[in-house]
Amino acid sequence: MSTTRPVSPVTLVTGGSRGIGAATCVRLAGAGHDVALSYVRDAEAAERTAEAVRAAGARCVTVRADTAEEADVDRLFDVAAERLGPVTGLVNNAGVSGPLGRLADADTDVLRRVLDVNVLGALLCCRRAAQVMTPRGTGAIVNVSSAAATLGSPGDYVHYAASKAALDALTVGLAKELGPDGIRVNAVAPGITDTDMHAAMGAPDRAAQAAPGIPLRRPGAPDEIAAAIAWLLSPDASYTTGTVLRVAGGR
């Protein structure tokens, strides 16, 4: 009787220590994925997520990496491959917004950081994923965009919305480029979701306060966004590519 462990998908989730990223890691573990997750600062949160992934029966490795840095991205993919096996899936979840406010009041350093992480970081990760997936003729990428990409987010973070619109363009273009190589590229565009991101922006009650303006009259939960991401990575979405799936409660 063979005791060989079945080969599991290996999915890399950037910004996987908290919020949507953490929920995605646990959801994917339940679906049979081994998971590599990156984090920038909170090692304890990353390890809590890793423990939840392992409790779900999957393998997990955590890697401190700033996705805006090319060397960190290369190391992230290398460690994932060395510890878990070839990366078959990528979730570009790492993102920053900076404080809420009008563009006229935004610091240049904030604008640069938002573009570096949300756009350059996603490009670097997508490029490396394409390099490792193309020779195998299979793979799936999910970019975590935002409903802000089409709403514009005036008065809150126009710069963040612009960065997510760039991510949507990346998704559509890369899907067409990599489709012939057997690689699917999609995005999920969450609406306002109940995570600690709002506290980091200086508005901890923002999700609850936004509820009256959402047709479903509530913010989303991280697990609801994770479910959409997991579906796009799954065989059930085998004919889905170049799609930005809006999960925004009707906004």
Rank of each mutant, 00 (worst) to 15 (best):
V53Y: 05
A94V: 01
T195N: 03
G32D: 11
A169D: 07
D78G: 13
T193Y: 08
A104T: 07
I141R: 10
S153P: 03
A50I: 03
A46E: 06
A43S: 08
A122F: 08
M1K: 08
D205N: 13
A29R: 05
I20G: 04
S153V: 02
E177K: 00
L178Y: 10
M1L: 11
A65G: 04
D223I: 09
A203T: 05
A80H: 10
W231P: 06
L178S: 04
P180L: 12
V96C: 05
R27C: 04
G21T: 11
G202C: 14
G152T: 05
F77S: 07
A58R: 07
R48K: 13
A52C: 02
G173M: 11
A29G: 14
R127Y: 09
S145L: 05
R184M: 04
S2D: 12
D66A: 01
V61E: 10
A80V: 04
R113E: 12
G191Q: 13
V188T: 00
G213S: 14
L174K: 00
L28C: 06
G95Q: 02
G152I: 07
T193D: 13
L28S: 06
A175W: 07
D196Y: 11
R217T: 10
T49V: 09
V172E: 12
D74A: 14
A200K: 05
T195Y: 05
R48E: 15
E177R: 03
R48N: 12
C25T: 02
D205M: 09
T240C: 15
A55C: 01
V110L: 14
N118M: 06
S2H: 08
A147C: 00
Y160W: 12
A122G: 15
G101A: 06
L111V: 00
G30F: 13
V61G: 09
R218I: 12
V132M: 08
A45G: 14
G16K: 08
A71F: 02
G155E: 04
G30Y: 12
V61I: 05
T67S: 05
G101F: 12
A147F: 00
A50L: 14
T11G: 03
A228L: 03
G220D: 07
R113N: 02
C125S: 14
R128Y: 07
T134R: 15
L216E: 09
Q131I: 00
W231V: 01
G249Q: 07
L124C: 01
R136F: 14
T49G: 11
A175G: 04
N186W: 13
A81Q: 15
L232D: 12
Y157P: 07
P86N: 01
R218G: 06
D42R: 10
A31S: 06
A187N: 00
V244D: 01
A129C: 11
A81Y: 00
D34H: 13
N118L: 02
G85P: 07
V142Q: 01
A237F: 13
A200D: 15
V40C: 04
S38G: 15
I214Q: 14
V73S: 11
L37P: 06
N92F: 03
L233W: 01
Y157A: 15
G250I: 06
A140V: 01
G249E: 14
A45N: 08
A149E: 14
A140G: 10
C126P: 06
R18L: 13
V158W: 03
S146Q: 04
M201W: 15
H198F: 08
